[in-house]
Amino acid sequence: MNHFPQKVVDSKRAFRRELAAKPIGEKLRILDRMREREATIRRAAAALKTNRTKARE
């Protein structure tokens, strides 16, 4: 059974089409920003893990 409202599915699909239709230069700049964000999250997660390990010791 699918409880996900069709309106939400359609709206997501439309947004993805909108993103896909952007000029390639713009899409690559979005990838640049996504990679930076991902790197920040990974560093924060690694620091959190280190702190937790230290707290346990």
């Binding site: 993103l19 896909a20 990838l31 996504m34 990679r35 991902e38 790197a39």
Partner: peptide, 14 residues
């Protein structure tokens, strides 16, 4: 993923 982004929406990749 970078190659796919030429055709699709931007796809997160490291």
């Amino acid at each position: 993923a970078v190659g796919a982004t030429f055709y699709l929406e931007p796809i997160a990749t490291v």
